[in-house]
Design a protein around this nucleic acid. Structure first.
Lengths: 144, 144
DNA sequence: TATGCATCCGGCATTATGCCGGTTGTGCCG
DNA sequence: CGGCACAACCGGCATAATGCCGGATGCATA
């Protein structure tokens, strides 16, 4: 039994977006026979690489706006900024990162207005050097 | 055409965990005939409540290192890039965003080497203009 | 060469699906 | 009241997909 190769990756790529595709069609896409494809898929399932299949359910409640705030700080680390960020209920996740950036903040708000207010408040926090906002237009891939 | 009712909610609940279940089995679970169930499901798909079906991809090795890849594309949108990204099991989440950036890709890998390889592969994808890597040093805030 | 093993393939019986006509229940209006 | 429209539901049949198997192929190794 070999590790995941190029073909497996192609399979994962397709199944991660078309989870209900018939094995026959999947086989056609990757250029293998149906039975072999089925075999590979069930191996991926047994190895736990494919954990299952999920229907992608759209918003039952009306559209929340998600965004990334990319922060550069004047000094790191900055407990103060983290404290303040934790105080915003819109803040979902904060990661300290290496590189040009210092913090990646994922937020979820009810409106563009709310996003602007939040953005302004964060930008004027002490110790925040630079702030880039990236509004999420679409979730292309999401794996639990 | 009625709004989503109790039965639809039961369907969503099952499909969100067993995306590849045969319509016949689904019908048995919710106590309706196969054809009616199929009818309801396809209505949910047409209304956009079910956006699609996704394989839930686990991790190859136990990934310890998380990182953000911030991509700028030459042209948007780019289905090709999404296809390739979906092929990497290290890729956890991809978001299309507005602003300077085009894609925010969250990855999880087992080693810095793996991250470098992934970074190189992604950077040399056709249509990728620019790639900034930000390694997560610490998860400061994480909410459900 | 012979053996073991992983991978691959095609075929056949079984199961699921797409499609359609027909039944039931309900609200509406002449 | 009786007829009508409509949505939800059901079952059946032809077609398509699946599960399961035996057997071919390639490859490393004793």
């Amino acid at each position: 039994m070999q590790d995941t190769d190029e073909i497996d990756r192609a399979i994962l790529s397709i199944l991660s977006r078309e989870g209900r595709i018939p094995m026959k069609s999947l086989a056609g896409r990757i250029g293998l026979s149906r039975s072999t494809t089925t075999e590979r898929v069930s191996r991926l399932e047994k190895k736990g690489i494919i954990r299952g299949y999920r229907a992608d359910i759209g918003q039952l409640d009306q559209g929340q706006i998600q965004a990334f705030l990319l922060l550069t700080l004047k000094r790191t680390p900055s407990i103060g900024v983290l404290d303040r960020l934790a105080g915003f209920s819109a803040v979902r996740k904060v990661s300290s990162v290496s590189g040009q950036l210092d913090l990646v903040v994922e937020v979820e708000v009810g409106s563009i207005n709310a996003l602007n207010e939040l953005r302004n408040e964060v930008a004027t926090l002490d110790n925040v050097e630079d702030l880039t906002t990236a509004i999420v237009l679409r979730r292309d891939i999401e794996r639990s």
